[in-house]
Every structure is written in C-alpha cells, then in structure tokens.
Measured scan of single mutants.
Amino acid sequence: EETGVRVELAEEDDGEKIAIKLWLRIEDIKKLKGKYKDNEAIEFSFDLERDVPEDVAQEMVESGYVCEGDHKTMAKAIKDRVSLIKRK
C-alpha cells in the first residue's frame, strides 16, 4: 500500500546496535495531510528494545516535524520498517 512515506536505514545495521538511525522520507505529499517538501527526510534514532513506533511518531508531531493528521501513517511506516529489522 502506497502511503507517501518510506522509512529506511540511515546507517548500516550490523545486528549489534540497540539504537538505530532511520530516515522518515516523504515521497508523495499528495497522500499526506500536512505540508511537506517532496523527498523531505527526517532523521531519527530508534531504540529497538524500548521505543514504540506510535510514541516516536507522536514525538515528531509534538516537535512540529509531522502534522497530527499524518501521525498514524508515520507510525505504521516506522512499525513496518522496525519489524523487518527485528526479523533479521
């Protein structure tokens, strides 16, 4: 499903790190509610043992990086990427 958002690794995952750096990349602004630039990327750290995707997305909303209306879309994108990383 195309959401307009993609999360990718910002650094090589060696399988050892607990906290990883990720990029939340805006790919299609028409599919989102907030005002973003095409190909805008937000770099953030995610602790694989402690962080919760919904909470991280909420922090982005509170910091003004993400529109409240896009919270669920961002949280799902983060959750999907993190579950792929954890499965390795």
Rank of each mutant, 00 (worst) to 15 (best):
D47S: 02
N39R: 11
E27L: 15
I20T: 10
I42K: 03
K37M: 09
E2D: 13
V5T: 06
F46K: 02
E59S: 13
Y36K: 09
F46A: 02
G4F: 05
V5H: 08
E12C: 04
G34L: 04
K35V: 11
K76I: 03
E8P: 05
I18K: 15
I42P: 03
K31R: 10
W23R: 15
D38A: 14
N39Y: 04
A57M: 03
A77E: 04
V66Q: 03
V5G: 00
K76P: 01
P53M: 05
Q58G: 06
E12Q: 12
A77G: 02
G64F: 02
K37T: 12
D51E: 02
I18M: 15
I42N: 02
M60I: 04
D38H: 13
K17I: 04
G4K: 09
I18D: 14
N39H: 11
R81S: 08
A77V: 09
E11P: 09
I78E: 01
I85V: 07
E12M: 11
C67A: 14
E54V: 03
A19N: 14
D55G: 07
L22V: 04
E68I: 07
K72M: 14
M74G: 02
H71C: 14
H71M: 14
L48E: 02
L22K: 11
Q58E: 05
Y36F: 04
L9G: 04
G69D: 15
R87G: 05
E54C: 05
E11A: 03
L48F: 05
R87D: 06
S45R: 11
Y36N: 06
I78W: 01
G69V: 14
E54G: 03
R87I: 04
K33P: 06
I18L: 14
L22A: 09
N39I: 05
D70C: 03
D14L: 08
K31I: 04
G4D: 04
S63A: 15
K30T: 14
E16G: 11
E68N: 05
F46T: 00
D55R: 12
E49K: 08
K35C: 12
E27H: 14
C67R: 07
A57V: 15
Y36Q: 03
E27R: 10
I85Y: 11
I29K: 15
E62N: 14
D14W: 07
M60N: 00
K35N: 15
P53N: 01
E59V: 11
V52Y: 08
G64H: 00
F46D: 01
F44H: 03
V66P: 02
E40V: 11
S45C: 12
T73C: 08
N39E: 10
D80H: 11
I29T: 15
G64P: 00
F44R: 02
K76D: 10
D70L: 07
K30G: 14
R25L: 13
V7I: 12
G69L: 14
S83T: 12
I29F: 12
V5M: 15
R87F: 05
A77S: 02
S63M: 13
E49R: 08
E8Q: 03
L24G: 06
E11V: 01
V61Q: 03
K21V: 03
V7Y: 08
Q58N: 09
G15F: 05
K21M: 02
E8M: 06
I78T: 00
L32T: 05
R50V: 02
R81N: 04
Y65Q: 14
D70G: 02
E40G: 09
K37H: 12
V56A: 03
E11K: 07
Y36I: 04
K30Q: 12
D13W: 15
A77K: 06
G15E: 09
D28V: 04
G15C: 08
L32E: 07
D38W: 08
A77Q: 04
K72D: 14
I78L: 03
I85F: 10
G64L: 01
V5A: 06
D80W: 01
D13G: 08
D80Q: 11
V7F: 10
K72T: 12
I29N: 15
E43H: 07
V61L: 02
K33R: 09
A19E: 14
L32D: 04
Y65R: 14
M60P: 02
K33E: 10
T73S: 08
W23S: 15
I20S: 08
K72A: 15
M60G: 01
K37C: 08
E62M: 10
K35W: 04
L32H: 08
L22S: 06
D47P: 03
C67D: 15
D55I: 12
S63T: 10
E27G: 10
K86L: 01
D38E: 15
E12I: 10
